[in-house]
């Protein structure tokens, strides 16, 4: 199987799954209509009707970690191809990536020392 065929197969699987779910929804709909009643569509909050909208500026208190995460996630994109050729390249690959990772790790330590690694 060529790579294109494989991806087409995965696309087909994806569409198939969506299709199955839609069939299930159709089946559920055939059971009867939903009865609209007062208060029913208000998001459930433990016995208190709270109609206030909640969308807004959310305080993500892990933003210190999130910034470091970006750096590490980028780095991982390079590590996969490196991992595949690692054995072939031998010690050179280890040193190359070792230097890169050491710098990145120092960054982690620096962020840690500056208090980035805590809930703000």
């Amino acid at each position: 199987m060529s790579a294109t065929q494989q991806y087409l197969l995965l696309l087909g699987l994806m569409l198939g799954t969506v299709g199955v779910v839609l069939c299930l929804y159709g089946l559920a709909r055939s059971m009867g209509p939903t009865h609209g009643e007062p208060g029913k569509d208000v998001p459930a909050s433990a016995g208190v009707l709270s109609r206030d909208p909640v969308w807004g500026r959310y305080h993500a208190r892990y933003y210190g970690y999130a910034l470091l995460f970006l750096a590490f996630d980028m780095e991982m994109a390079y590590m996969y191809p490196w991992a595949v050729v690692y054995k072939q390249e031998g010690l050179v690959a280890l040193l190359d990536m070792g230097v890169f990772l050491a710098i990145l790790f120092l960054g982690l330590l620096y962020g840690w020392s500056q208090g980035a690694l805590r809930r703000q």
Partner: peptide, 19 residues
């Protein structure tokens, strides 16, 4: 769903992913 419990849950998982 525009509900408070759900929204906190969703953003909490972003923190979990970062971990």
């Amino acid at each position: 769903p525009n509900g408070a419990y759900a929204m906190v849950g969703g953003w909490r998982f972003l923190g979990q992913l970062i971990a």
